[in-house]
């Protein structure tokens, strides 16, 4: 691990190098301008220091050419920075389609994580190196923020909606995980480690450590179980009562609503339709579905959505 005295911290993700390149550029221009300014004020201070009997200095001319030249140079500089920063930002906020999805729930003061194979952990995240990982995150209470310095990634985690974060770790190792949005008394304890394993080690870890009994269900299986337990399949399954729309192939596609508008069935839409089923009625159906708010918790919601996604061959493997 790089020591804290080195200019850059450990680089352990694909974007880390790109972010550091901008950082180094910024450090260079900062040092340049700071030294330039310090040099100028010192030189002017000494060279033009007050002398007895010297005539009063002349009034400066009102002439904006120096300001315009300076402003022009700065404009070019900041446009470069803006463009470069935006490019890397776009890259680091767009998860690739084949990313492995891990579900994250933040609560005061712990991180609950669930792997696609069903294994759960708290405050420690095991991931394979060399594979894009997407975190789908929500909070049970206040706003948190998921931060892995070695990956140079961070995203706020909000109650009542889903946020996404993706990264691809480049080398095995143990990296710190922090909550960076102040969330109450034990805010500074809300963190842990990200353990990056080789893909083979990760597969081994999935099956052996932690006891076989724990890693029973995948989120998709848990979602399917809930789907049955809560009675969803009575209306939403093909061949049953036909009271609700079929869910196969819905995820990620456009849905026509009763009021004539259209929405894309994404995580937020599914979430709203489960919690508050009357909000957006699909065209051709009656508003008969019960409200599940207060019945399913955040973890279960994530599982139900994972299951519905799986019906469309979604990203959840």
């Amino acid at each position: 691990m790089n020591s804290v005295y080195s200019l850059l911290p450990e680089q352990a993700s694909t974007v880390a190098g790109q972010v550091d390149a901008i950082y180094l550029f910024l450090v260079a221009i900062s040092v340049f301008f700071t030294l330039l300014l310090a040099g100028l004020v010192l030189v002017f201070g000494i060279k033009y220091r007050r002398r007895e009997g010297a005539p009063a200095p002349e009034r400066p001319h009102e002439d904006s050419s120096l300001e315009l030249i300076g402003g022009g140079i700065l404009l070019v500089l900041v446009l470069v920075l803006f463009g470069w920063g935006a490019k890397v930002f776009f890259h680091s906020t767009r998860p690739p389609a084949d990313a492995m999805e891990i579900l994250v729930t933040g609560k005061q003061w712990m991180w609950k994580l669930q792997h696609p194979q069903g294994k759960r952990e708290i405050n420690t995240l095991h991931i394979p190196a060399g594979r894009p990982i997407q975190l789908t995150m929500t909070s049970e209470d206040v706003i948190h923020s998921f931060f892995i310095p070695a990956f140079r990634v961070k995203q706020d985690v909000l109650p009542g909606r889903y946020t996404r974060l993706w990264f691809e770790a480049t080398k095995p190792g143990k990296y710190r995980l922090f909550c960076t949005e102040y969330c109450g008394t034990e805010h500074s304890m809300m963190g842990g480690w990200v353990n990056v394993l080789t893909p083979a080690d990760y597969e081994r870890w999935l099956v052996d450590s932690g006891g076989a009994a724990v890693a029973s269900e995948t989120p998709v299986q848990a979602g399917e179980r809930l789907f049955t337990q809560l009675g969803c399949q009575t209306c939403h399954n093909p061949g049953s009562g036909q009271l609700g729309p079929h869910l196969a192939g819905v995820y990620g596609h456009t849905v026509k609503l009763a009021d004539g508008t259209e929405v894309v069935a994404d995580d937020e839409y599914l979430r709203e339709s489960i919690l508050n089923s009357q909000a957006k009625i699909v065209a051709g159906f009656q508003p008969v579905m019960p409200v599940f708010k207060g019945i399913v918790n955040e973890d279960q919601l994530l599982q139900l959505i994972a299951y519905i996604k799986s019906l469309s061959g979604g990203a959840s493997n």
């Binding site: 700071t34 300014l37 490019k87 923020s145």
Partner: peptide
Amino acid sequence: LGLFVIGGLTGLFLSTMATDIHLHDT
């Protein structure tokens, strides 16, 4: 002048989106 120039220049780190993601709330 000496302190504000540093304050201003480090502001560039935070207005550049890619570096702000890493630096935000640190």
